[in-house]
Simulated scan of single mutants.
Amino acid sequence: MALSKRLEPLEAVKRIIDERFPACDAAIVAGSVIRGEGTATSDLDIVLFERERQASYRTSFFAYGWPMEVFVHSFHSYENYFESDRERGQPSLQQMVSEGTIVRDAPELKRIREEAKQVLLEGPDLWSESVIREKRYFITDLLEDFIGCSSRDEGIFIAGSLAERTGDFILRTNKCWSGSSKWLLRALKRHDPTIAGQFSDAFHRYYRNGEKESVIQLVDEAMVPHGGRLFEGFSIGKDT
Rank of each mutant, 00 (worst) to 15 (best):
117 K>T: 03
121 L>T: 13
182 K>I: 11
1 M>S: 14
159 A>D: 07
38 G>P: 09
171 L>Y: 07
99 E>H: 07
51 R>C: 03
65 G>Y: 08
22 P>H: 07
78 Y>R: 07
82 F>C: 06
135 K>N: 09
237 G>Y: 01
180 S>R: 15
12 A>H: 02
194 T>A: 08
202 A>T: 14
116 A>V: 07
162 L>C: 04
235 S>K: 04
87 E>T: 15
201 D>S: 12
21 F>L: 02
159 A>I: 06
29 V>K: 07
84 S>I: 11
148 G>Y: 11
213 E>S: 13
90 Q>N: 10
137 Y>W: 11
14 K>V: 06
86 R>Q: 11
122 E>F: 04
10 L>E: 05
94 Q>R: 03
73 H>R: 02
12 A>Y: 01
111 R>C: 06
189 K>C: 00
177 W>Y: 12
233 G>C: 05
7 L>T: 00
158 I>W: 14
43 D>V: 05
107 P>Q: 07
46 I>D: 12
15 R>H: 00
7 L>Q: 09
195 I>F: 10
95 Q>D: 02
197 G>Q: 03
30 A>G: 13
88 R>W: 04
108 E>L: 06
88 R>N: 15
219 V>H: 10
128 S>V: 03
230 L>Q: 02
25 D>I: 01
134 E>Y: 06
34 I>H: 10
172 R>Y: 09
105 D>P: 02
57 Y>V: 04
138 F>C: 04
165 R>H: 13
94 Q>S: 15
193 P>D: 05
5 K>N: 10
25 D>T: 04
238 K>L: 12
183 W>D: 00
138 F>G: 03
186 R>M: 08
100 G>I: 08
223 M>G: 04
104 R>W: 06
212 K>P: 04
218 L>K: 02
172 R>S: 14
91 P>A: 15
15 R>P: 04
20 R>C: 04
66 W>M: 14
72 V>E: 01
183 W>H: 12
123 G>M: 05
208 R>Q: 13
189 K>Q: 13
155 G>P: 07
180 S>H: 10
108 E>I: 05
10 L>G: 03
223 M>K: 02
164 E>K: 03
224 V>K: 08
103 V>G: 10
39 T>M: 01
94 Q>W: 09
98 S>V: 01
40 A>E: 14
129 E>W: 02
154 E>R: 05
50 E>F: 09
240 T>P: 05
154 E>M: 06
165 R>L: 09
2 A>R: 15
223 M>Y: 02
209 N>K: 12
62 F>S: 11
24 C>E: 11
111 R>D: 14
143 L>E: 09
